[in-house]
């Protein structure tokens, strides 16, 4: 009985979390769509997410593209199928590695900082102060992040794709002695608009999710610094798991 009680309680807690996250999302979106719009906040988030994430995303993409090419070479050379490497790297980067790795890096970098910032604002009564200064905190803090999450991640995924392919090119041409012109030709011939678009769609979904979890966990923070720390961990872990879960679902849906 105790075991069943525990299972039941966990399931109810899970359902209640989904319900409260959905309400949080509805409040944030509904508050954000009506004017006035806080352009300064939106611009700030765009720079924070779209611009300052570029180094992390770029490095991840470069090294992944390089490692991917090396791994493919080790396998494909056994079947003298080296010519397929550029197209495999292309497909892997645009469909999977680009969106998933970008999202995981952004979840670690920005999801965590979002939760920590909003959580600290919550425990130091800054969110109450926003309300008593007649500003809707969902509109001011959450909506700009959700909007930019939705728009900036596809942009970062695209950059990730390009840099990843460039990493593959560097290893292929300068280390594995592929012919540069052939490598580029094989890469271009493998370009599929749908592959790129599907990666960007995944990026948009993941970006929205990271910001939703980051803000939601921040709002749930309580009990001082320890509470903010726990909320930050929860935010990153839940975003990362949901990214991988949704990646699987979206792959089923899109292909």
């Amino acid at each position: 009985m105790v075991f069943l009680e525990r299972v039941g309680r966990t399931f109810l807690t899970f359902l209640s979390s989904i319900g409260s996250a959905t309400l949080f999302l509805a409040k944030s979106v509904l508050s954000g769509v009506a004017p006035p719009y806080y352009w300064k906040q939106i611009g700030k988030q765009a720079i924070q997410m779209g611009f300052f994430s570029l180094p992390v995303v770029g490095m991840t993409a470069l090294f992944t593209g390089m490692a991917m090419t090396l791994q493919c070479y080790n396998g494909f050379s056994k079947f003298t199928a080296e010519n397929a490497i550029p197209s495999i790297v292309m497909i892997a980067m645009t469909r999977e590695l680009g969106p998933v790795l970008t999202a995981l890096m952004v979840a670690g970098r920005l999801g965590a900082s979002m939760t920590a910032e909003i959580g600290t604002m919550k425990i130091t009564e800054q969110i109450d102060a926003l309300t008593t200064l007649s500003v809707n905190s969902y509109k001011y803090l959450v909506f700009p992040r959700l909007l930019i999450g939705l728009l900036a991640l596809p942009f970062l995924v695209f950059i990730d794709d390009v840099i990843g392919l460039f990493g593959g090119y560097l290893v292929g041409v300068y280390y594995l002695d592929f012919n540069a012109a052939n490598y580029i030709r094989n890469t271009i011939s493998a370009i599929s608009i749908w592959d790129i678009a599907s990666g960007l769609i995944k990026g948009a979904v993941f970006g929205f999710l990271i910001c939703l979890m980051g803000c939601y966990q921040g709002y749930l923070s309580n009990r001082g610094a320890e509470g903010v720390g726990k909320a930050t961990t929860k935010s990153v872990v839940s975003s990362s798991i949901l990214i991988l879960l949704l990646d699987c679902v979206l792959t089923f849906v899109l292909f």
Partner: peptide
């Protein structure tokens, strides 16, 4: 507010 609650 008790702690000021100034926006950091």
């Amino acid at each position: 507010y008790q702690g000021g609650a100034l926006f950091d």
